[in-house]
Design a protein around this nucleic acid. Structure first.
Lengths: 224, 224
DNA sequence: ACCTGAACACCGTTCAAGT
DNA sequence: ACCTGAACACCGTTCAAGT
């Protein structure tokens, strides 16, 4: 692929985003990106620093696509909706989303969402539990999505995984085998399809409900 | 370093575990492992297959160190204790723990913990919400730990991160700046220390409580 | 200011050959 | 069965040199 010179940082980041999404982070390299852009590897270093910095920019390109819900709704619905939008963005760009879970991008602008969450928590009246409420929500929601998107076995190995699971010994795994039909290919660590084919929508809604119910129970009694 | 020949798969996995923990996954390579063992790279391939399979074995070596609590206690305490043990293991071997979040190891034996969790959930009476309760707990707890252990900026960049955060514009980030003392270096995405220096113990306890409270609220009314 | 061309010090993996 | 030695096809990054 030929690209007009001079190239820009913006084009580099956009192309890196696309390549990571198309071929996966493991297949992505500075050299393949340079080839894709029709340019020498060293050129990239002039524009974006090194690989790690470039990945930080890609990560930021991803996070800025999550839009805050407006504040008109009640806090529960606002929190739930934000969590859903975060997850939706992750499912639209799963490979970059997994990258973003590493928090490489130290960009202040990516703190706009955290700031809004803090504001909402304060208004809810979490009081001196602010940090913990924040960490619990952030860790649980982002963490769930990371786990959900964790790369499955390579496509050709999927049926092997399925066979392994179907062959589980009822003596050793009495509970999983008894509830096999409910769990198989649905529960974390027991899936052989990837997240795109089998999104855990209902489990995510369940988590959000559990979190917000549990959080409400922690609030001082002045609010329900 | 010299190693007696013939070498064993067990020695390879043990050494790989140690190297990943000492120097980080990024610094780990098949070649450096071979050098450490005083052996040619090709030898490793004969014993463990390829890099990806070896990492799977290291992951399993990590997960099998988590011991199940005995079943005598009530389900809430059992769940909380298991979550704590999982996290404690992660903090003892953070670099391998992050590797394990990728679920590379497709080893049936690593399903012993999931099986026990399923059993407990069933006894709690989650009914047809079994998969979702399982995924919510698993995703939230494991996810929180992954986020907590996410690599911070390189040590030499820590003070830069701190400066950036202290320089946040109160116009743009009114909530974070107002609660800066509570949040700084404590909240996810706002830390400059790593997890070893600043473990999020209280936030984790908060999360576990929120999850179990919220889960209890989902149960049919036959149980409190 | 921006890019080339070449080089350096690495990788993971394979394979024939040795014992 | 287990290991060597060499090779192949890659990496990220740096740097002098070009324009």
């Amino acid at each position: 692929m030929r690209a007009e010179v001079p190239i820009t940082r913006d084009i580099i980041v956009t192309t890196a985003f696309r390549l990571i999404e198309e071929r996966g982070l493991e297949q992505f390299s500075m050299r393949s990106l340079a080839t894709e852009l029709g340019v020498f590897p060293a050129t990239l270093y002039w524009h974006v620093g090194d690989r790690s910095q470039l990945l930080g920019m890609v990560e930021f390109r991803w996070i800025e696509q999550v839009e805050l819900p407006d504040h008109l709704t009640d806090w529960r619905e606002w929190m739930a909706e934000l969590a859903r939008r975060y997850r939706r963005n992750a499912h639209e760009h799963p490979n970059v989303a997994r990258l973003a879970s590493l928090e490489r991008a130290r960009n202040n602008e990516s703190l706009l969402i955290p700031d809004a969450i803090v504001g909402t928590l304060v208004r809810m009246g979490v009081g001196d539990q602010l940090v913990h409420a924040y960490n619990a929500l952030m860790g649980a929601v982002r963490g769930f999505v990371v786990m959900e998107l964790a790369p499955r076995a390579e496509p050709d190995a999927a049926s092997d995984v399925e066979e392994d699971l179907r062959a589980l010994d009822p003596e050793q795994f009495p509970n999983i085998t008894e509830h096999f039909d409910e769990m198989a290919d649905q529960a974390l660590s027991m899936r052989w399809s990837n997240a795109a084919e089998h999104p855990l929508d209902d489990s995510f809604e369940f988590l959000v409900k559990v979190l917000l119910d549990g959080l409400a129970a922690q609030l001082p009694r002045t609010r329900k």
